[in-house]
Amino acid sequence: MITKARFLMPSAWLRPMTLLGMLAVFQACTTTTIDEFRQGATGISSEDSVVILGRTPVSPNDADPSQFVECVGERMASGDNAINVIPEQQFVDAMFPWFEPRMAPKRNEDLQLMMAQPMVTDIMSGLGVRYIVWLDGQTERTNEMGQLSCGLGTGGGGCVGFVTWEDDSSFEARVWDISSATEVGTISADAVGQTYIPAIVIPIPLIARVEANACSSLADQLKQFVQGD
């Protein structure tokens, strides 16, 4: 009797689980919107490099986009039409103290003032920097709902419940052309996705990879933008 019950149980709950899983996979997808605003012509040679910089936090409440910056840089430096990307820390150290959090140029006018310094232009030329991309933004988690309970007994363990939340990644990339010390465009990426974790004995996490999708979409668009396509 017990053996029979054990044998029948998986197939009994597998069917609804499969349906639930398929439904959740379908709903766990991410929607990414990319907006591009071009202000000037672009183009890049094989000797030129791009620097991706994040707005480093200068107060406790500021978001730290360093992981996103790394992700965008890695994506731009790989694949088809890969671009030379100078690592953020290497660039900031070489340019010290001009790109430290409190000193970094925030507006086009600040960039022009900074580029008027012969030492700054010399280092930029030495590094082969053609474009600086300023990244700003964050991922916010909202609409967290549900409850998941897990237990462990002598006969085994398991989880029951359902939790869900929404992630919203909103990032903006401002592209500065160093050769003309002007802003040549802005690209924004907005990705939204709902994560579901249903659990009937085993939790099935259906994670919406919101920030990863925002990163890849923004990096691909930036690559095209600086190449002038």
Binding site: F96, P97, W98, E100, P101, R102, M103
Partner: peptide, 10 residues
Amino acid sequence: LRDLASNFSL
């Protein structure tokens, strides 16, 4: 300290 150095030097 890096923040101090940048602010002080500039």
